[in-house]
Amino acid sequence: MMGRLFEPIVIPFAALLVALLLFGIFITAAGADALGVFESMYRGAFGTWFSWQNTLVRAAPLMLTALCTALPARIGLIIIGGEGAVVVGGMTAALTGIVLTHASPIIVLTAMAFMGMTTGGLWIAAISALRHYRGVNETISSLLLNYIAIAIMNFLVFGPLRDPETLNKPSTYHIGEANMLTEMGSTSIHWGFGLGVIACVALWVLMRHTPFGFAVDITGGNMRAAKLSGLPVARLMIITSLLAGAAAGLAGMIEVAAVHGRANSSLNANYGYEGILVAFIARHNPLAIIPVAILFGGIRASSGLLQRDHDLPDASSLVLQGIIFIVILASETLYGRFSWLRAKEKTV
């Protein structure tokens, strides 16, 4: 029992250290001072309360978009359509906010969240329905649907929904300052972070501690066996995708309600794509998504200092993300190889 808990913590941590080591070699090769770079990274990401807030606020959308890849992966679907779900979710949330702008803020926000989650959910559910009933490859269709989502948004933002006052950056009308999602307490972190954590924990409970989650894992492990044992595979797939898309749709709603107040091209800021990395590093475990998203938020937050203090290009933080991704994926092969990590299992 101990071993099973221990292994998934020790191996990723060791992998992370190896990744930092490789990154250190990379920086040294690039001519910068590795010691100073690590010091700046720490200062920029976790060194002060300001840096912490900077990190957490960047982690907020990543948690939700990572769920959009992680949940379907548990049932055996590789979906990379988080970006599209963020865009449609944000777009419909903005629309809802504009229509209801004079209602009380709590109603506006609830309706926005509901609409954003519904459209985001249907967007991804449609992908898995296509996969199940028509045999369309879900990875390709989810990727292509991202472009369709962006095209629909551009059409609406440049056309029927454009606020004529937004001359040089076409956007929809504003949802109203009073309806904006506030910050948590006295921090500068908006409620998107809180909602992200809640979503991750709730979905972890659903996936790990309910019959539904168990059925999803069985289907993901062996679909034929799941079918033979009478599990409703189609329904499981569609519900899982619906939840996944709802998470990404909520991320879009939060972008509109907490940051921009309008829908515009800032909705496709690659949160959907970064979420894919987070999901894979977290090994599709909703709870593990929280620390991984915070780690990635920290890397992005410290990128500024690397550029300002060390003249490194922005790409160096992408290099670090890439190294972490590869080392963690490679470390998957180590599971079960260290008997001392699993020694206690025999006694169970």
Binding site: R43, F50, N54, V57, R58, S266, A269, G304
Partner: peptide, 21 residues
Amino acid sequence: DQENVPETIEVQKAMESMINL
């Protein structure tokens, strides 16, 4: 200076980071 900063909350934080740090 700082490059590749999207027009999201990231730019707010980039400005604050320059001011604070």
